[in-house]
């Protein structure tokens, strides 16, 4: 194939920038990241792009291609034949340079999540059917595309009020772990900002690992928070249970 593709790549930093056009020869099976590497080698050696594995395992090369949040290494160029391919950095995060953004807010949020605290040290006896549910969340590659597309972070800049879909999946992973003893419901409501999500499911649409974040993590967590704060019948039941069994193991364990 000797066809040529036109890529319009954002160049710039906090002070401003614009898209620059590059012509790239199209090869069989080429992905957008291949094209960017070609541009680096031949035209713009200082074009900043974050990438690591080029195999959709590490989640480093997130960007927006023709307006859609995608992994550069997994997006084939041939699907855009006849079009200009616009490549821009993730919109929801502060720009560093060109296609590289500052995603450190995610790591700061992650640090605040109460860690997994098991009933006993391993080895655990856990059955596959009981871990299927959490293993879905373990597929996450932390590309933060869900954070990018989430309108709470993207349009309302509410990173201080909502941890975002990725962190909800992480919390669900620990909260639903069969051996976990930590109760993160108050944290979810008051710190992680779970109520900020209005279940519009954009995170599910962009996930390259096909994790159904909204239905399998966020909504079940919302229901668990509702158990504690929005269910008077359960509240009465809980009070009754607490007074009748004083030797009940505490629901939270401090490590």
């Amino acid at each position: 194939m000797s066809e040529e593709m036109v890529l319009s790549v954002f160049r710039g930093d906090q002070t401003g920038g614009r898209e620059e056009e590059f012509h790239v020869p199209l090869e069989t099976g080429m992905v957008v990241l291949d094209a960017l590497h070609y541009i680096q080698a031949e035209h713009a050696p200082d074009l900043a792009v974050r990438w690591n594995c080029k195999a959709a395992h590490c989640g480093s090369c997130s960007a927006e291609i023709n307006g859609r949040p995608k992994l550069l290494c997994k997006t084939r160029l041939d699907q855009y034949e006849g079009q200009v391919v616009h490549v821009r950095p993730m919109h929801a995060f502060p720009l560093i340079k060109d296609l590289v953004t500052d995603v450190s807010s995610n790591y700061r949020a992650a640090k605040q999540i109460p860690a997994f605290s098991p009933r006993t040290p391993a080895p655990f006896t856990m059955y596959q059917r009981d871990v299927d549910r959490v293993q879905e969340f373990h597929q996450c590659i932390e590309c933060f595309l869900c954070q990018d597309t989430c309108h709470v972070l993207r349009d309302h800049n509410a990173r201080d009020r909502y941890f975002g879909p990725r962190m909800m999946a992480k919390i669900a992973e620990w909260e639903m772990h069969p051996m976990d003893t930590q109760d993160r419901r108050e944290f979810l409501k008051d710190v992680a900002g779970l109520p900020m999500c209005n279940v519009t499911r954009c995170c599910v649409e962009v996930c390259p690992e096909h994790i159904v974040i909204t239905d399998n993590a966020i909504i079940p967590l919302k229901e668990r928070v509702a158990d504690l704060y929005w269910d008077p019948i359960r509240a009465i039941f809980r009070r009754f249970q607490r007074s009748s069994t004083s030797s009940q193991p505490s629901s939270t364990v401090t490590s």
Partner: peptide, 19 residues
């Protein structure tokens, strides 16, 4: 490996519920 399990790694399970 068991230490990882204590820290939250979830390996695939045998029918008896082990790693």
């Amino acid at each position: 490996v068991l230490e990882l399990e204590t820290w939250g790694a979830v390996f695939d399970r045998t029918p008896a519920g082990k790693i």
